[in-house]
């Protein structure tokens, strides 16, 4: 086990380039579980936690940039986040318990790439962009394009998450975050969802975004249902069809936490409730 500590972003990039197989370490709330279970023996860790420059929430053109090292505890209380991205704030408040929220970071959570990452459905519907940096420069990925599978990302060796860009969404007509977890707190989700809906004056759907977590190897937007709904009024047959289409974009499984059938049925019911205006808020 080697433990490298970066004190500046420049040092971080240099170390990452030199040790492309090093595991970046932020709050440690996921990595340390793996370490305690002996799964990181012999690995090199690159500690990014001293990088103050990456622990800021700063205003940006058309939105905000959230540094990779911003904790869930800060996000859930941040006035700007509460105002413009309330679903993200809400989701951050469901991450583990207060201890995990205080330590775990947004960048670390994304890099960990769990299918059950609580902030992921909100980030998916807010169409966040993830800024990656390496010794040679920067690139940006759409949030959903970061993930390659369960605990796998498309980050190149030596590449680090620097920040997450949150664009200001137009004010939605309806929005929802719902986590169905194993218990009321300190829970891992069985399924969870975030939704944003914009309606025309005549009730037709101008735009709808709905994302599900814990329903596939990575967080999923409901592309089929979203496309079908665009331009339609939310009458019974339309909602029925959209709910049916939900299954097209996800592949839930049976595991120790829940069942495939339950995940699907619960997600469909919440999606239906959202479209029918019974669930969510304006």
């Amino acid at each position: 086990m080697r433990f490298l500590r970066a004190r500046t972003p420049e040092e971080a990039l240099r170390l990452a380039e030199k040790h492309p197989d090093a595991k970046p370490l932020a709050g440690g709330t996921d990595l340390m579980v793996a370490w305690n279970a002996g799964r990181l023996d012999g690995k090199t860790m690159l500690d990014l936690s001293p990088l103050k420059a990456w622990a800021r929430i700063s205003p940006a053109k058309d939105g905000a940039d959230v540094g990779a090292l911003v904790t869930h505890a800060r996000l859930m209380r941040h006035p700007e986040v509460l105002k413009f991205w309330p679903l993200l704030a809400e989701a951050c408040g469901t991450v583990g318990g207060p201890q995990i929220q205080a330590r775990g970071t947004l960048g670390g959570n994304i890099a960990n790439a769990s299918p059950a990452g609580d902030p992921f459905p909100p980030l998916a519907v807010y169409e966040a962009r993830v800024r990656l940096v390496h010794a040679g420069g920067r690139r940006e990925l759409a949030f959903l394009d970061v993930f390659a599978g369960v605990k796998k990302t498309h980050l190149a060796p030596g590449e680090l998450i620097e920040s997450v860009h949150l664009p200001h969404p137009p004010k939605p007509s309806r929005q929802l975050f719902r986590k169905i977890g194993t218990r009321a707190a300190q829970a891992i989700s069985k399924t969870m969802m975030a939704g944003l809906l914009w309606l025309e004056r005549d009730g037709a759907v101008r735009e709808v975004r709905f994302a599900l977590g814990s329903m596939a190897p990575t967080v999923k937007r409901l592309h089929a249902a979203e496309e079908f709904l665009r331009g339609r009024r939310l009458d019974r047959p339309t909602v029925d069809k959209a709910v049916e289409l939900l299954a097209a974009d996800v592949s839930p499984i049976d595991d120790v936490r829940s069942t495939r059938a339950y995940r699907l049925r619960a997600a469909q019911n919440v999606f239906r409730g959202f479209l029918e205006g019974r669930l969510g808020r304006s």
Binding site: R5, L25, G28, M32, M45, D47, A73
Partner: peptide, 14 residues
Amino acid sequence: EPVNSCLVPVGQME
């Protein structure tokens, strides 16, 4: 801030 000390490598505590 409250943290779980089982999840903190001491190297981060400088």
